[in-house]
Amino acid sequence: MASCAASLLLGLLSFLIVANTASSSSSSGGIRLSIIRKPSADVPVFREAPAFRNGDSCGLQRIHIVMTLDANYLRGTMAAVLSILQHSTCPENMEFHFLWSRFEREVFSSIKSTFPYLNFKVYRFDSNRVRGKISKSIRQALDQPLNYARIYLADIIPSDVKACDISGL
């Protein structure tokens, strides 16, 4: 149960880091119901991270972390992944699941080149699932369909990825 709580905490931490990055980088100038896209030339270049290894006390239990991913918040995602790996006792047991609404080759290449040892999978989120369901907001970041992907996790993530039982927390 303790490891389940720890993996839940890590997952929530990663969402908070990405959410804070989103709220600090957006303006409240207008409402957008489409996906905000940066030109591919704006995708930052990152250095390769070292290989992070498990400590002596690690078992075989996988820790699954789900995050959204797009070019707008790539810097925050990279910071979250690096922080999680750096501060984990068992980084090799972590498996990242990234949700994106459209394939962006530069973003995928950035993840692969920065974290060549990272165990991750990518899943497509169809933004049409939430179209017409998002109420207008004063914050642009809240109007983005990818923010609502977590509602559909059970439909997107494979069933062999076990969820934590948080009822006892």
Results as ranks from 00 to 15, higher is better:
57 S>L: 09
143 D>E: 11
93 N>E: 12
106 E>S: 00
105 R>C: 06
126 D>A: 02
94 M>Q: 12
98 F>G: 03
132 G>I: 13
159 S>P: 02
23 S>W: 07
54 N>E: 07
8 L>Y: 13
83 S>K: 14
153 L>G: 02
103 F>Q: 10
32 R>Y: 00
41 A>N: 10
23 S>Q: 12
93 N>Y: 10
118 L>W: 04
104 E>F: 03
15 F>Q: 15
96 F>Q: 04
74 L>N: 07
36 I>P: 10
126 D>N: 06
110 S>K: 02
5 A>D: 09
123 Y>R: 02
94 M>G: 08
72 N>H: 01
76 G>D: 05
71 A>S: 11
62 R>Y: 08
99 L>F: 06
158 P>I: 13
37 R>T: 02
7 S>W: 07
74 L>A: 07
19 A>H: 08
134 I>M: 01
161 V>E: 04
162 K>M: 12
135 S>I: 03
103 F>Y: 09
42 D>Q: 04
58 C>G: 10
153 L>I: 08
21 T>A: 03
46 F>L: 08
99 L>C: 03
128 N>C: 05
137 S>I: 00
163 A>E: 06
23 S>P: 00
33 L>K: 10
81 V>A: 07
22 A>H: 06
2 A>M: 08
57 S>T: 06
120 F>G: 07
16 L>H: 12
19 A>I: 06
12 L>T: 12
50 P>T: 04
160 D>W: 15
156 I>K: 15
37 R>H: 05
2 A>V: 12
47 R>V: 11
6 A>Y: 09
138 I>D: 00
78 M>L: 15
150 R>S: 10
83 S>F: 15
30 G>H: 05
19 A>M: 07
23 S>Y: 10
129 R>S: 02
1 M>R: 13
127 S>C: 04
6 A>H: 10
78 M>Y: 08
138 I>T: 01
164 C>P: 04
36 I>A: 14
109 S>R: 09
22 A>C: 13
95 E>N: 14
110 S>R: 06
133 K>M: 12
77 T>V: 15
161 V>Y: 13
163 A>T: 15
